[in-house]
Structures are given as structure tokens and as C-alpha cells.
Amino acid sequence: MSLYRTELRRLTKRRFTRWMTLAGVLVLLAVLAGVFLTNHKVGPAEQARAQRQAEQQYQEQVRWAEQEKAACVQAQAAGTPKDGRFPPDCEMISPPPRDAFQAEWFLPSTFDFRKGFDEMLVPFTAILALVGFVVGASFVGAEWSTGGMMNLLLWRPKRLTVLLTKLAALLTGLVTLVLTSAVVWTAGFWLVGTFRGTTAKTTSGAWQSFALTGLRGLLLVLTAATIGFALASLGRHTAMALGGAIALAVVGQFGVGILLSMANVTFVEAWLLPTYALAWMQKKVTLEDWDSCNNVSFSGECKPETLDITWQHSSTLLIGGLVLLLGAALWTMRRRDIS
């Protein structure tokens, strides 16, 4: 019997795998339903209503400016002391221009598939990466804690072959899950765009961009699953991976973020892992330091210092962490006693 097929069957038959996958799918469906319910299709009626609301806001500002200007003139005629409410010249009080009130501001939220779907691949990847991490950790951690790994090595004594085959089965199952979910996710948001927004201008270039973002998301899910698998293999228990993830989130992220903020370190987000995950998905994340304001234009506009985190930085971090953890798991599998 093939070891790979046996491990793949073991993965799909585990109740924890099924329940965790179901939970992830339900969360994805909840996000999809939430986007559908909170968006609306914009037609001529909505456009006309938005125009009326913009005009109404403009007229209110005109009336307010006229009232303030009249009050300013009366205060000057009465010789009322200046209290800072009015400018020296009452002619300076004037309503804003009409084009300052855009009808688009009053339109209901609508889903533009071409502009919005790329962003929706980020929560899709995050949810499946969490599923992959937990399932990967449980898949090998349960084998160690229940003694199944020892029994398996009696049948197939090649340690590294066994561990890598289990990893290959895990990644195969996740690829199937991600690709299947991606098809449903794409079709679901196409329907959202059709009935609650627009799918116009979705060109072949847009689809190519979606595919590349989805590919990066797939790699991120597989990386998260491999890291969870490696941590559980190192600790020989699922709790090792889950505890490490919690410690990293609480101590390594929130704790470091608070300490760096208290130390007035610039670009605190550059030390946090979510920034690099987002940069991997979006290709670049630009951080801004609004406390700097070193370069001020003649108009008084503050131009903060910026720092770009690119997907190249993220790939270096992900590859380094993956090689380190998986290499350590393979080394300990080969060197340590199985007991």
C-alpha cells in the first residue's frame, strides 16, 4: 500500500480536519453573505437621490454662510468686541464651491468587482492560512501524542520519508481545498458584483492580476500549514504549535508593538509579521510616520516620512522562517529517539 495514499486518506478521514475545514468554509460564506447584504446596486434612482442630497448639503452651507456673514456685519456695526468668531473682513465668509459636494459621497455602498475582488482575496487567504496552520499542526501532533508515529515507523522505518510524505499529503489536501474554495469565492463575488454592484471593465489583465494574487495567497496558506506542521513535529504535540502561535501573537506582536511605541520607534509596523503578510499579498505596503512632518510644503501640508515594505522583503522572511523551522523538524526527526 502506498504511504502517500495512506497519509492522504488519514488526513481526510480525521474528524478534526473535517470540522476545522467546515468552520473555515462557514466563515468564508459569512464574509461573502455580509458583503452581499451591505452593498447595493446603483442605478438612475440612486444617482438622482445622491444628486439631491449633495444639492441639499450645498444649500445648507450657503444658508449658513449667509447667516454668519449677516451676523458679522451686525457685530461690526454694533461695535461688538472681536471674540474670534468672525474674521476682520466679513466678505471672507463665503460658502464652499458647488463642486466641493460630490454626489458619489451620498451613494450607497456598491461592490465593484474589478476594484474590490483583489482586496477580498486577503481575508480569504488569512482564513485558509489559519485553517492550514491548525490542521497541519494537528495532523502530525496527534500522531506523536497518541503513539501513532511509533507504530507507523515500525511499518516504514525511514523517518524522513515518513515525515515528508505526511507533509506532502497535507499540502496536497490544502491545495485541493484552496483551489475549490477559490472557485466558489470568485463565483460568489461575481454574483455580488452582478446583483449588488458592477462587473464592468473586468478585463483579461484584471483576471491575470487576480490569478497572481491568488497564487501568492496559495503559497502563503501552504507556508502557514508547513510552519504549523514543523512546530508540532518539533514539540511532538499539537499544543507546541498552537502555544507558539499564541506566544508569537501576544508577546511577539502586541508586546513588541507596545514597547516600540513607548520607545517612540518610527515605523513600528515594520517589526510586525502581519505587515509582511499584507505586503506579500498586495506586493507593497507603504508605512507613514505622521510624527515626522519634516518636509512641509508652502501650503503647510505635512508630508510624512514613508517606508515601503515589498513582497521581496516578505518572501525573504517567509522563506527564512520556513527553512529554519522545517529544517529543525527534519533534523530532530532524524536525530532524536522515537519513544
Rank of each mutant, 00 (worst) to 15 (best):
F210V: 08
H237M: 05
T194N: 11
R336H: 05
T332W: 02
T316F: 14
V183K: 13
K201L: 12
F36T: 06
R156K: 09
V192W: 14
G84E: 11
T110V: 10
D83K: 15
A211H: 03
E46P: 08
Q53A: 03
A329V: 06
N294W: 09
T186A: 11
Q67A: 13
M333K: 07
H313M: 00
W144F: 09
L222N: 01
G43L: 03
H313W: 02
V192I: 11
G116A: 11
Y4V: 13
H237D: 03
M1F: 12
A211L: 04
Y58Q: 05
E301D: 09
S109N: 15
I258D: 15
D308N: 04
G136A: 06
F133T: 06
L170R: 14
Q312I: 15
Q312T: 07
T110C: 10
R335Y: 08
L26G: 09
P44F: 06
G252L: 05
H313L: 01
M20N: 12
Q51C: 05
P108V: 07
G79K: 15
T199W: 11
T186H: 11
V31Q: 05
P274C: 02
L163F: 11
L212G: 05
R14T: 05
I309S: 14
L272Y: 03
V131C: 05
K41Q: 09
D99S: 02
L260A: 14
A142S: 15
K201P: 00
F111P: 00
T199P: 01
M240K: 04
W155I: 08
F36G: 01
C72L: 01
L171A: 13
E46K: 00
T213P: 02
P96D: 14
G327K: 03
L242F: 04
L171P: 09
P88R: 04
D308F: 01
K41H: 13
T165W: 01
A100K: 07
L317Y: 06
K158P: 03
